[in-house]
Design a protein around this nucleic acid. Structure first.
Length: 260
DNA sequence: GTCCAGGAGTAAG
DNA sequence: CTTACTCATGGA
């Protein structure tokens, strides 16, 4: 199954926040390149996760046939392989925020401190480099990006990364190890760490538990308790590719396909 | 005005 | 190891 729904994946799914539709094509600056939904090069093939067999993953025998409905409704939704640093910034900004506001914050951050590449005469701004963000004054960042108390987290995390915190190296250790190390970064708790693992480090066995997934796992799976407990139980039930399944379930809950 | 959003940090029990 | 409170912002 090679379906790729660009609108769903790049705009609606809330795993990435800076894609724009330009002349009917979704495009964004990804680590300094103009990436569009039409690209077929090796970088984009990896970024869009086009090699994974989603039919196989989604055939998981999950109770109540929930996934069947999700697969039909969200055919072509894929889990991106973003650069770790880009996912880190975006999901630090995501904490206790709604999707439309996260999109605004990411775009303001990139406009203020990132570089741009051109696509069809339009400027696509990318995430600021760690060394750049590390030198930004906190009050200035708050004022320009309107990101509130998250400004401090962005700057301090940028300092650690620019001073050698091995973000990309976490791609090669286990999800659990990566998660633990990510949580040492300011502004990165368990849920944000799971998002970085899933969307930015290629760990398909990460399972982010936000308010929607928590509600869904309780109402449909009977799993209650702390997000930590929900995460562990869900991983047992859903297996090694639980993160991919999480994305479908999250979207189903958020859009109301599944009433909670 | 209150409540909520892809929560995290901190202090306290 | 849990719970309770605070932290900015903007839209509903």
């Amino acid at each position: 199954m090679r379906e790729f729904n660009a609108h769903l994946t790049l705009f609606e799914s809330a795993q990435v926040f800076h894609f724009r539709r330009i002349c009917g094509v979704y495009a964004a600056n990804v680590s300094g390149r103009a990436v569009t939904e039409k690209d077929t090069d090796a970088f984009s093939e990896s970024y869009f996760d086009l090699k994974r067999d989603y039919a196989c993953v989604l055939s998981h025998p999950e109770p109540a046939g929930l996934l069947k409905r999700c697969v039909q409704a969200f055919c072509g939704l894929r889990v991106l392989n973003q650069p770790a640093w880009e996912a880190t910034l975006a999901f630090i900004l995501s904490a206790n925020n709604n999707v439309s506001r996260i999109r605004n914050l990411v775009n303001e951050l990139n406009l203020a401190y990132g570089d741009y590449v051109e696509y069809n005469g339009e400027r696509l701004y990318g995430f600021p480099r760690p060394e750049v963000l590390a030198r930004v004054d906190e009050a200035t960042l708050r004022e320009r990006v309107r990101c509130g108390y998250r400004a401090k987290y962005l700057i301090e995390t940028a300092r650690l990364v620019s001073q050698g915190f091995p973000l990309e190296a976490l791609r090669h250790c286990s999800c659990g190890e990566a998660r633990k190390k990510l949580m040492s970064l300011p502004g990165v708790g368990g849920k944000v760490a799971d998002c970085i693992c899933l969307f930015g480090l290629g760990h398909a066995d990460a399972f982010p538990v936000d308010v929607w997934v928590k509600r869904l796992m309780e109402s449909r799976f009977g799993i209650k308790g702390s997000p930590e407990r929900v995460r562990e139980e869900a991983k047992k039930i859903l297996g090694d590719s639980c993160g991919i399944l999480q994305q479908y379930l999250f979207h189903a809950a958020r859009t109301g396909l599944i009433d909670l």
